[in-house]
Write a protein that binds this DNA or RNA. Structure first.
Lengths: 194, 194
DNA sequence: TCCATAAGGTGAGTCCGACTCAGGTTGTGT
DNA sequence: ACACAACCTGAGTCGGACTCACCTTATGGA
């Protein structure tokens, strides 16, 4: 599903297997709300020793980042597809909601997101940029179509959505997230013909 | 400045001094971006031993919480004052901006906020409720005056503003925060006579 | 097929930082 | 001035992320 992009020679077969197992185990742990999943547990449930975990990932954080990066990759493919299928306004609306749904895969994930937010790692920086670009794409289409106010940038909107990450531990958080999204959506349209 | 509200007898003079010194040292450390300020450092710069720190605060987190709670207390006094001086619309606008300025006291503070967000401690719960109530007060005044849409609650708006917490580590974050605030403000007015 | 070899795996041990507690110190009421 | 409870101290414990010296095995060439 993924070809090597780096100049290094490909991983040995068993190494590749282990790396994948670790990512799967980490995702599993984070998604199931096991917030305090320790490296030892993740390694064990992946069927390897901690040393192997550290062969593949610089730190515990790096592993979390990688899990998150994969999520972001999937999400960032959406805007282009949505713009082909829907009007700019509708595409924007749907993407914002998609973001909410995606954040809903498990409260453990939002912990991971926060954990990453708290670091200034280059990996996360890339993910953030990617996401911001996706939003910019949608905003630009909206501005061109005259349904979105000018002057709001992708990175800004991304941050505005950041609050959704801190939302576990409440009962009706998903509805609330949708409300916030609607609020931002309307804020974006404020002052247009919409 | 503060009288004992609990049934326990007042602290001994030296204990009170130490407690205050610890809070001051902690605030200092957090505000100056010393993100990884260790309990040992905080205790030393307050002129006490770690044991003393733990006599006054259950855990490191509890100390952070207390610093934050004080900030929140100050902030929550604002809405009532603003509503006396300005129109509901203007009061809301000013309070949202005040929130941003307040978050600006130092990037270290946002780390503290996040740290608190990541726990479901009762202390933070109280602070959050307090803040949400302040926002509700402003929103209600706005709805009554017909300048704010109905159906948005204080807790919801609070979360929407949450994204601002994750904003250190960027150059022009303060301008961005202001933009987001404006966005939400307009979202709130969407569909009214405003 | 089989070997040489380097990539990969192992897990006991190190490091470090939050937290504890037995014992000394000091403010306070009488 | 005294008794004593409240307070303070800081070396030590504990837990979890991370390391590294040594072992295992995939791989590619003979």
């Amino acid at each position: 599903m993924e070809v090597s992009l780096s100049s290094a020679r490909p991983l040995r077969a068993d190494a590749r297997r282990n790396r994948e197992a670790l990512l799967a185990a980490a995702r599993e742990a984070f998604l199931s709300g096991d917030t305090d999943s320790h490296v030892e547990e993740i390694a064990r449930s992946a069927g390897v020793a901690v040393g192997t975990l550290y062969r593949h990932f610089e730190t515990r954080e790096a592993l979390i980042e990688e899990v998150y990066r994969q999520e972001v990759d999937e999400l960032c493919a959406a805007p282009a597809a949505l713009l082909e299928r829907y009007s700019p306004e509708e595409a924007l609306r749907r993407f914002l909601l998609l973001l909410v749904e995606h954040a809903a895969v498990g409260k453990g994930m939002s912990v991971a997101l926060e954990s990453i937010m708290a670091t200034a790692s280059p990996v996360f920086e890339a993910a953030r940029t990617q996401m911001a670009d996706a939003l910019t794409q949608l905003l630009d289409a909206g501005v061109t179509a005259g349904v979105v106010r000018d002057g709001v940038t992708g990175p800004t909107l991304l941050r505005a959505l950041g609050g959704i990450c801190g939302m576990r531990a409440t009962e009706g958080w998903q509805d609330e997230a949708r409300q916030i999204t609607a609020l931002l959506f309307d804020g974006l349209r404020y002052g247009t013909a919409g």
